[in-house]
Design a protein around this nucleic acid. Structure first.
Lengths: 256, 256
DNA sequence: ACTGGGTCTCGTACACCGTACAAGGATCTC
DNA sequence: GAGATCCTTGTACGGTGTACGAGACCCAGT
């Protein structure tokens, strides 16, 4: 058991996964359980967002006092870390193994990653803030490495390629999911929200010149169908760019 | 003047920049001023992080009550949005204009962007959460579009390329800056912190097999010099990958 | 000189947050 | 039955963002 106050003093182990502590069992009258807590937390995070999760509300949903949760968990942050790893467990590893060649493997991984971020908009900010070294996250990391390892890039260049691909996916998934979150908060469809946003943007005085160079792109966009189709299309093409880049670097390296 | 409670009801305008409100002047006895507030906020954010910024502490630093700030600002979030745009103003636009060709322009932009994220670790989480449509952010966006526009990619493909490059930079800058923040919180140099982290990771039972495929990479890394050199190296190579990818797509598109 | 209206600052208060601490009930072991 | 262990709770502390209303100041109009 580590108190929240002590956590900060030992920052190299500032993660639940470095605590090496067994889960405490749910033999109590409330039938509580770390898994039940985490599952409820994920539900609440998906519905109310990161800011909407509070120990008291989470406890209430489990028909229990806030302090009860602290028997199973040291800190609210721990719950989020557990929730994150649980979500990493949603990756369809079998589909990844079934992929044919590194290109396909990267594509499947990137798509799964992106879908995870979009399904759970609280993941982006959390993934940036905590270490992602739970068992499921590590399993995914292993697959990523396997995929990049298959490209033929020298080992010392592989981390760069991994970054290029998956930091891109993270960034892309972040804006996509935040856009979806905003639309949902506004109670609009993504398409309506997009139209509204562009209008608000265009109508704003003082932005006239700044918008100028973007006008053409906004126009082209308007003729490309639904917002979600645009997200898909842009993502796919960006991945093509990345794959093409890796191919070019491979032949450049091996040609030397 | 818009109350915080009303902001949420009209989410398409959920940004200071869509409020279109003039700054209020600092003729008061405290000599307060929106610019002074924002500048102090940036200082505090840099030193204490996003969680370390509170209206009361910020006010105290300005020798004023918390509620005084609300004369100049509707919401704490507004302060963060202003602070963000002010930081976007750190971009050296002249250096970008001096760049020679789109490849160089992308490289300079990416580097400036990355440095901004690393200098201000609170920018990553904030940039993910708020719209970035302040004047400085828009100016930077315009330069980015100019750079991508120079690649020769068709207009409807340019947003994808922009994503590929700058969502990558965002993701990369995010982990780099968070790593730096963690090291600083631990009171260690980045190098010491890296060694500690790897050790803690390796020593953790249950991770033995998971680490296995990563062992080679970790070993290679150990012989590549300082952590900050590795960050630079990986970043530069990833950018090469991206540029190579764009080149390949350009010749693919124009070849068709 | 006095008054009225902006402009700015402050004190108080509310609802909420994470969580430390100690007391208790429940259950199982001997 | 006694004691230990497991689980839950009540209370309390120090923080948060910010709504509201009262005041202080200055400046224009009469």
């Amino acid at each position: 058991m580590v108190k929240a106050a002590d956590r900060a003093k030992n920052p190299a182990r500032s993660s639940v996964w470095l605590e090496n502590r067994a889960a405490r069992g749910g033999g109590g009258p409330a039938g509580l359980d770390r898994d039940r807590i985490v599952a409820a937390a994920i539900r609440m995070l998906d519905e109310e967002g990161l800011a909407g999760l509070s120990m008291r509300k989470l406890a209430a949903e489990l028909k229990v006092t806030a302090m009860s949760l602290y028997w199973y968990v040291d800190t609210k942050d721990d719950i989020i870390e557990f929730a994150m790893d649980s979500v990493y467990g949603e990756f369809d590893l079998a589909a990844i193994d079934a992929a044919d060649g590194w290109r396909d493997m990267i594509r499947v991984l990137a798509l799964e990653y992106r879908r995870m971020l979009v399904r759970h908009p609280w993941m982006s900010p959390s993934a940036g803030q905590y270490l992602n070294i739970g068992p499921h996250a590590i399993a995914v990391g292993g697959k990523i490495q396997e995929a990049i390892g298959g490209t033929g890039l020298p080992v010392d260049r592989q981390p760069s390629a991994t970054s290029a691909v998956f930091q891109f996916v993270y960034g892309y998934g972040t804006i996509e999911s935040q856009f979806g979150r905003r639309a949902a908060e506004a109670g609009m469809s993504q398409d309506d929200f997009y139209v509204e946003s562009v209008k608000a943007f265009r109508d704003n005085p003082g932005f006239a010149e700044a918008i100028e160079p973007m006008a053409e792109i906004l126009d082209v966009r308007a003729s490309q169908g639904s917002v979600s189709a645009i997200w898909d299309r842009d993502f796919a093409y960006a991945l093509d760019v990345l794959v093409a880049g890796i191919e070019a670097m491979v032949s450049r390296e091996t040609g030397t």
